[in-house]
Each structure stands twice: as structure tokens, then as C-alpha cells.
Nucleic acid binder design. Structure first.
Lengths: 154, 154
DNA sequence: CCATAATAGTTGTGTGAGCAACTAGATTGC
DNA sequence: GCAATCTAGTTGCTCACACAACTATTATGG
């Protein structure tokens, strides 16, 4: 495994494979999952993820800020995403008892129904495009790698 | 390593770690590299990538279509990205001798100069945020995993 | 050859995202 | 107990991108 040093003008073949491979794999997966959801359930991946996080949250609700953090989204981005979901009737905003500035986004009955329909297909998509192609050893190695990257800088 | 089956309503903890880990790692890295380039060189990552591909292409030029494919970008997206680079004077469009429909995007002298300044810092950023945190075994495992995912479907 | 279809790239248009500025409510400290 | 500050969320604005429609050129086949 050839490694390059600080300041060198190029990466090694090995490094390029690991790095560009990630960019491409990520891209291909996200695009394919998003278009599958859109095609089969008229649901963008971003909306799906909101419903999923909410459904798995206690009481089916979460504070706007927490939701934005979990979804790796800016707060304004989340505001508008939730707007769209509210328009569809899948989410509603609820006041927060102990902080009048705060709001909960809460999944509605109809949101749960939507998610119930979409979830199995989506998870199968992830299994098919990702897990099924990887061995146990691959998965373990990936988890280990993400753990190491996790302790981030800047 | 627990694996879930087709049709199951949830993923296992192990699966979630491997999957969400990739989403987060990718996101953190791209954001950090993009803002570093923007901060230190006023150069978005997307523009940097164009310059890099062109500089590494024979004759410092590539057909618009090929470029779009390499950068995982739509054709129209690339048209506008190249527009911006042309405005900066870092790239120029050149007619294609053997196909009057086609165009080359070609890196200019000033584009090469820009890249020369930005490249070491960017590569160090990748080394710091990615390679330096991973062992040889990790890198090999990642490459292997990307190779398996590569044989894609849909 | 000439009509039809395919291809390369650009342009019109809509959308989802971020940043900075804003509003409203909470917290701190003097 | 009230001014200064901070925090939660939204709104104004801009921008990069994708898709679909378009133009110009090349390839096909009858």
C-alpha cells in the first residue's frame, strides 16, 4: 500500500482508488436510492429521511434543530424541507411546552402510513446496492474506518 | 456481523454503522475540503476538480462530455461550471477538429498556475482528513469494497 | 443522396440548499 | 428586575445543479 507524503504533488494509485472510490460509490448509491424512492413513491430521499428519523424518535417528534443536525442539513434547509412535508400532510409543527421559541416537527398518521409503504423498498434498495455486495469482513472494515475518521478535525 | 434480510423493516446496528458512517464521513470530508479550498484559494472544489482533470489529460484538454462523466456532473451543469472557469480565465473552449459539434475544454496557462498553488494544500487536506487516519489495512479494505460496489445495477 | 435518427453541447426553467439578516423568546449579570 | 446577550427558528437572497427543450452537426438506411 503506497502512501504519499505531505507536500507531494500527487496521490498514489492506491490512495486514488480508496478516495475516488468513495466519492463514486457514495454518489452512485445516493442517486440510485433517491431516484428509486422518487419513482416508486414520489418521495425524495431527503423527505424520506425526515419521516424515518421522526418515526424512530420518542413520541414521533423531534426539535427542528436536532433534526437538522441528524440529517446533516442547515437549519434553513430543514425549515423548508419541513414546510414541504407539512404541505403534504406528513408532518406537523407542534409548539414546545418548555421553550416557546422551539418547535417540534411531528410525524402525522398519514406520514407514518407513507413511510410504512416506502420503507421496505428503500431498505431493500440499500441492501441490494450496498450490503449484499459486501462481505462481513468488508462491512466490519468500513465501520472501523468510519470510526477512525469520526474523530475529526476542522 | 448481523445482517438483515430482504423485506425486513429495519437494518441491524452493524449495517447502520457501515451505511450511515459512509454518509457522514463523505459529507464531513467534502464540506471540509471545499471550505478549505474556498478559504485559502477562493476556489470551489468543483472548479478545482475541473482544473485537475484537465491538467492531467493529454494536451491539457478534454471533451465536454467526457469531463462531465468524470466529474459525475450533468452536461448542463458542466456547461455552466466551465462558463465560470472561462470567465476566470482558467479554462478556454476550443473547437474539435474532427467533430464540429464537439468542444474541448482546455486549461490555460493561468489555470495551471492556479492549480499549482491550490493542489498541494488540497492534497494535504485529503491526506490529513482521510489517509492519515486510516491504516494500510483500512485503505486496502476500502478499495476492495469500492471495487465490489462498482459492479453496479440500476 | 436525402430523410430520419442519433449525438454534442447550450439554454430555459425550476428546485433544493446555504448564508446572512431578522424575530421572538430565554438566559445572564449587575 | 431589567439591559445585554444568546438561542430557536424563519425569511430574503443567491447559487449550483438537474431536466427538458432546443440548435447544430453527424451517422444511418432505403
Amino acid at each position: 500500500m503506497k502512501r504519499t507524503q505531505h507536500g507531494e504533488e500527487r496521490l498514489s494509485e492506491d490512495e486514488i482508488a480508496a478516495w475516488k472510490g468513495m466519492l463514486r460509490a457514495h454518489r452512485d448509491l445516493v442517486v440510485s436510492l433517491d431516484s428509486q424512492l422518487e419513482r416508486e413513491h414520489s418521495l425524495p430521499l431527503s423527505s424520506y429521511e425526515v419521516l424515518m428519523v421522526l418515526a424512530d424518535s420518542p413520541g414521533g417528534r423531534a426539535r427542528m434543530g436536532e433534526l437538522a443536525d441528524q440529517l446533516l442539513l442547515s437549519r434553513s434547509g430543514l425549515t423548508r424541507l419541513v414546510d414541504r412535508l407539512v404541505r403534504q400532510g406528513w408532518v406537523e409543527r407542534k409548539p414546545c411546552e418548555d421553550d416557546a421559541r422551539g418547535l417540534y416537527a411531528a410525524i402525522t398518521r398519514s406520514g407514518r402510513a407513507k413511510l410504512k409503504k416506502a420503507r421496505p423498498a428503500h431498505l431493500d434498495g440499500v441492501r441490494e446496492g450496498f450490503f449484499s455486495k459486501l462481505s462481513d469482513a468488508d462491512l466490519a472494515a468500513l465501520s472501523r474506518a468510519w470510526g477512525r475518521l469520526g474523530r475529526a478535525v476542522t
